[in-house]
Amino acid sequence: MDNAIEVRDLVVERGRRRVLHGITCTIPRGSVTGLLGPSGSGKTTLIRAIVGVQFVRSGAVTVLGRPAGSAPLRRELGYVTQAPSVYADLSVRENARYFATLLGLHAAEADRAIADVGLSGARHQLVGNLSGGQRSRASLACAMIGEPKLLVLDEPTVGQDPVLRADLWGRFHELADAGTTLLVSSHVMDEAGRCDRLLLIREGRLIGDDTPAAIRASAGTDDLEEAFLRLIREQEKVAA
C-alpha cells in the first residue's frame, strides 16, 4: 500500500448545496501534498471528509487502508482545523500536554512539538493572550505531537512571517522524509512550489492533480499562479 489517502467519487452536500462534485484522487505516502483552490472551493470540506468528521453523500474515502474516521485511525492522525482549535484559557504547554496525554504520549513529546513551531519562549503564556499567528502555531503544535503517520493541515501558515513559514515547511519536509504523509491546504501560491504534489480544486471539482513541475509544463508557464489561472480558463472552455 503506497497510497496514504484514496478518495473515490466523493460527493458532499452542505446545507442542501452540493459542495464536492465527485472528487477522485490519491495521495502517496511520505509526501507533502498541497491542496490549493480559491476561497469557498471546498478545501476544508475535502479535508473534513478525509479526517472523518464530514457527512458525505456518496463515494469512498480510504485513509491508511481503512475507511476514513474509523477508530484505529484516530491514533495515526494529526488534524489542524482552519480556525485555531486550542483552549484559549490554557497555556500553550497545558494545551500540548493535554493532547499528548490523549495519545498516550509523554510531556517531553509535547515540549518537542512546541519547540518545532518556535513557541518555546511563549510556552507558559495563555493561548488567549497570544498573537493570531502564534495561536495558529499553538494549534499546529498540538497536531504534530508524536509524529503521526498522517498530518492534515488546513491553512497552517496563515499569518506567519516568511522566515517562520520557511522553517515550518522545512519541518514538514523533515517529517515527510521520516515517513509522515502531509496534506496541507493553502491560499498562497508561493507555497505550492514547496509541495511534492498539488491538488487544485475549484468549485468542488478537481482541476489538477500532479507534481508542480508537471503542472507548470502542461500549462506552459513557470509561474504556478499563472498555471492555475490557465487551468481554470481551460476548464471553463470545456464546460462551455
Binding site: 468528521v53 484516530r74 482545523t81 482549535s85 493532547f99 490523549l102
Partner: peptide, 13 residues
Amino acid sequence: TTGTLERLLTTPL
C-alpha cells in the same frame, strides 16, 4: 463553537 470538539473527536478520546 471553537472547534476543539471537532478536533477532540479525531483523537482516541
